[in-house]
Simulated assay, not measured.
Amino acid sequence: MDPTARRLNMADVAALAGVSKATVSRVLSGAPGVSDETRARVKALVDELSYVVSPDAARLSRGSTGRVAVVMPQTTTWFYSAVLSGVLSVLRPEGFDTLVYQVADDRESRRFFADLPLRRQVDAVIVVAFPVSEFEQRQLAALGVPVVIAGGALADHPHVRIDDAAAARQAVTHLIRAGHERIAMINAALSPERPYAPPMDRMYGYRTALDEAGLDADPQLEVDVPWSVTMGAEGMDRLLSADRPPTAVFAFSDEVATGALRSLRRAGIAVPHAISVIGIDDHPVAELLDLTTVRQPVELQGTRAAEMTLALLGGDPGIQPQLTLPTHLVIRGTTAPAEPRGRTGDHGTPGGSGVTAG
């Protein structure tokens, strides 16, 4: 294609499909009022154009729009709202508008990314901490604009993240130094279709810390639970039902740790005297719960990702495309030295078999 060719827009798609621009808009937004036949014809044309239209031609013909897209699975939970706050703190003073797209589940994600090549009215995209399939990666590449990842890494795109393996090692090493040997992990379950690095990296850090201390990993103490608001409680219930429950638990995040604490409270098991609990994040609720955690700079990841985006748009040759921010241990009241072996005490014990949460 001629690199000076005009970028195809919604009017072009409508003309090629023999429908109105309003119809194309309804198809792209998933709105009703379009026949199945017409919807299929427009969708097929969109798919075809996503591979025919040159991203370079689109970029050259478009110029600057003054808009940056931010794609995230949620907008209301603390992590994502904090990252978004960091992004906005940089883009707003520079005169950029931020378009926030929420893809809360697989269905929304498929629909959003399928239509993405026609959403070319942005100068850059910031993707915030969620698993992206191979198809979705291709759709991002088809945009022909800078793509920056905040809170993770994806292919060779510039990114801002923490070292998840190192953060996990910080958490588990703290428990080991406190004398714990039966240390469990409640992790986020992985989807083969949507590989996601943080759960894998944190599991690697957990196992590495155990190995360095000469402790064997026990499969019964590694619990993977699909992500939900109750996953921490579900994971803790499973651990309490093991033949030999742990004396300490490393949770994927502070929110997961909060659910684990709920199950322990309901089971009448004292924290930290019987079981210690640690998370990752330093979520605002962590201080209220006196939760020991590994703090990560969440809002700063959004800030740095936005700064990286502006540098890419400005052609800054000195940009650092891969930035890893430090984490550090915050010791509070949910961790304590392990009780001597065989000691029961007056605080409840993880010893025995078949303990379940009430």
Rank of each mutant, 00 (worst) to 15 (best):
S353P: 06
L175I: 09
N9M: 06
A274Y: 09
A336W: 04
G235E: 05
A171T: 05
E37P: 01
L312G: 12
M236D: 10
G63I: 12
V100R: 08
F130R: 15
V277I: 10
V42D: 08
L215D: 07
E94Y: 00
L240C: 04
T38Y: 05
V122I: 14
A270V: 07
G345A: 11
A129P: 09
A189Y: 09
A242V: 06
G358C: 07
I162K: 04
E287D: 15
A274H: 03
Q121S: 14
H273Q: 15
V19Y: 02
P340C: 08
I162L: 08
L16F: 03
E181D: 13
G345D: 12
V87P: 05
L175Y: 05
T76P: 01
V132F: 08
E48A: 14
A17W: 04
T356P: 01
K21Q: 15
Y51F: 11
V13E: 05
M203N: 06
Q74L: 14
R59G: 07
V277W: 01
V100P: 02
L215A: 05
R120W: 11
R343Q: 13
L84R: 01
A274S: 12
R111M: 03
V229I: 12
D282Q: 09
P131V: 03
Q296S: 09
G345M: 11
R120D: 11
E37V: 13
A242Y: 01
V225D: 06
V53T: 11
D36I: 01
M203E: 14
P297C: 04
L154P: 07
R26W: 04
W227P: 03
V46M: 14
F79N: 10
P146Y: 06
L288W: 03
A251H: 03
T334L: 03
F252E: 10
M200W: 00
L264F: 06
G354H: 15
M308W: 02
V71H: 07
R41K: 15
V145S: 09
R26Q: 10
A311Y: 01
F250S: 02
D224L: 10
I186C: 08
V294C: 07
H273D: 15
G315R: 10
S109G: 05
G279Q: 04
L221E: 04
Y204W: 04
P146T: 08
R107D: 14
L88K: 11
V277Y: 04
E287W: 01
Q220S: 15
E94C: 02
A129Y: 10
E108V: 05
I183Y: 05
Q102A: 08
E193S: 11
V52Q: 15
A82W: 08
P73N: 12
I162Q: 06
N9H: 10
E193I: 04
T77I: 11
L88P: 00
R169N: 01
V70F: 06
G318M: 08
P317H: 02
G151H: 10
D290P: 00
V249Q: 07
F113M: 11
A22W: 02
A15G: 14
R265L: 13
S54Q: 10
P146I: 13
L329T: 15
I149E: 03
D97H: 13
A213M: 05
S109Q: 14
V53C: 09
S89Q: 13
A31E: 14
V145M: 12
V83G: 03
G179I: 07
P158G: 09
S54R: 03
G358S: 12
M1V: 11
F252R: 04
S35C: 10
G318P: 01
R332V: 02
